[in-house]
Design a protein around this nucleic acid. Structure first.
Lengths: 104, 104
DNA sequence: CGGCATCCACATGGATACTG
DNA sequence: CAGTATCCATGTGGATGCCG
């Protein structure tokens, strides 16, 4: 078996804190599909979240460099979100979790 | 890039719900190290959790087949916890998360 | 349209004491 | 020692409305 000493300072906890929550996995799902998605469109895909909460989740994910925010000036405003590069390479791990999760 | 259609039914959300929380990542950490650990010993390693909460977390993890509970009859009672086999093969994914988490 | 400000409900975690 | 029962604090998510 592998050496799990790496868990010691619990980056694991930090990751899980960052990626989990009521809506973040769903957001991740959509961003893995669309690469770049406009806020209003993302919101329409998740009709059960309030705008406030969706925004909060997105902001937290920005702070943790899970996603990036792209703003195109003008009126009405246009804001897009996309995965951060660092998150893309996490894809395989997330897919394992996805697969594992289906068994429960 | 990979095909992330697998996220569709959001096993990802289920996994993250199951593995995250205030103490579960820590519990996982200890179990990845010790393989089989007695309740009281685990508790002493996590002095800031109340016994009640620790027990709750362990029970939930049992229900989701993340860990197994082993009881050795007698008095005083002896109860051990260990990772479920299905969780062990998740190790690599968790290590990626561990590594990724350190960067934030 | 994207983002805030309020106010609020409820689930989750916590302190403590008790039992077999 | 392992597990339960109470009671309680608080944070996270939610409904709604306003603003540039």
């Amino acid at each position: 078996m592998m050496n799990y000493t790496a868990f010691e300072d619990c980056g694991l906890k930090r990751s899980l804190d960052i990626l989990s929550g009521k809506w973040k996995p769903l957001i991740l799902y959509h961003l893995f599909h669309e690469k770049e998605i406009r806020f209003i469109r993302l919101w329409r895909k998740m009709p059960r979240v309030s705008k406030k909460v969706l925004l909060e989740q997105l902001q937290q994910m920005q702070e943790h460099r899970v996603i990036e925010r792209i703003e195109r000036k003008g009126f009405p405003p246009e804001v897009y979100y996309r995965l951060h590069r660092d998150t893309e390479w996490l894809g395989p791990a997330l897919q394992m979790l996805e697969h594992w999760g289906k068994g429960r």
